[in-house]
Amino acid sequence: MNAFFASVEQLLHPDIRGKPLAITNGHHGSCIITSSYAARAYGVKTGMPLSHARLLCPHLIQMPARGSVYETYSKQLMRLLHDRFTPDIEVFSVDEAFLDMSRVYHRYRTPRILAHAIRDAVCQQLSLPCSVGISGDKTTAKYAAKCHKPMGVTVIEPMVAERILAPVAVSELCGIGPRTTRYLSQFGGVNCGSVRRIPVSMLRKKFGIKGQRRWLMCAGRDPDCVRAYLKPAQTMGHSKILPPGVNSAARL
């Protein structure tokens, strides 16, 4: 989905559609959770202090996050994808999902037609913008989905995935964080193509089976399959950024 929280709020409040909008952690929140594309045009970014964002965009509209509302739309989204396209769906986050279309792909003439069908169904049924990426593996498909936001459709054929990914910075791939990026850079692995020149045995020794997977991810051959049935979460976490001025136990 594209700027999911902000898009939901603009759907429910037509008077702020197309305007710079920031969603924060509560009415007095000081941190931006997400923002509309109109706000992003001014340089407003996720994680940015609200005070900084207002310097970039003085007419920025602030709204508090409403988790229960977004959860409702998230459930509608996942139900639509499951019922309309395939039951082989892995919910990746509140506004992202992987679909294994292997069993139903024959219904569509080309991958691009399929991608447009998914995007248009979401837009028509939920009135929310989304982007779709299609490829032969999860990591490449996720990268493709963010290539042409908002409302983009990107297809990366498996046979050309390695070539397409070669110049892409490894940090752009989902699952490759700062620690791995720093390690790879020590051996010249700054993009997917250069990572492929690092012996896979070296990554396996450093990161175990995850190292081998990351090496394959850079070639557009992520072996991780879509898991429609995930194990229950073993841990849960919750964090909150305190409002400005809270600097003592008494204020807490």
Rank of each mutant, 00 (worst) to 15 (best):
C174D: 11
L126S: 06
R163M: 10
V226D: 05
T86R: 13
R221A: 13
I198M: 00
H27Y: 14
F85K: 09
C192W: 00
C147D: 05
K45Y: 08
P129E: 04
R213L: 01
S201K: 13
A38V: 06
C174V: 09
R103W: 04
K45S: 13
C147E: 10
L230G: 00
I118A: 03
F4I: 05
A6I: 05
L128M: 10
A41D: 13
M101K: 09
M151T: 10
L252M: 13
H28E: 14
L203Y: 05
V122I: 15
H106M: 07
G237E: 10
A117G: 04
R179M: 04
V200P: 00
R182P: 00
S36E: 05
S7K: 05
L126H: 13
R107W: 13
T86Q: 12
P49F: 07
R221F: 02
M217H: 08
S185N: 06
S36I: 06
H28T: 13
L50E: 06
V226F: 06
Y143H: 11
A141H: 02
Y42E: 04
S36V: 10
S248R: 07
I164D: 00
V122C: 07
S239L: 12
G175N: 07
C57V: 07
V44M: 03
M1V: 08
Q212K: 12
C225A: 15
P158S: 09
S68D: 15
I113C: 03
S30C: 13
Y73S: 02
Q234P: 00
I198L: 00
G188S: 05
I89F: 09
H52M: 12
Y229K: 15
L165D: 00
E172M: 11
T181P: 01
Q124S: 15
T154H: 01
G136F: 09
R103A: 15
P243T: 08
Q186G: 09
Y105N: 09
A97T: 04
P178S: 11
T86Y: 09
G175F: 08
A117F: 02
I23D: 01
H148E: 14
Y37C: 02
A3C: 12
R227Q: 14
A6M: 08
G188D: 00
F207W: 14
G136C: 05
T180L: 02
D120R: 12
L77P: 03
D83I: 06
D88R: 15
P64R: 08
A22R: 05
Y37S: 04
K210I: 11
L216E: 13
S35W: 01
P20D: 10
E9F: 07
S127F: 09
L230Q: 14
R213H: 09
I176S: 01
T110R: 08
I16C: 12
S248H: 04
G26I: 13
A161V: 03
A228R: 15
L99Q: 07
Y105K: 15
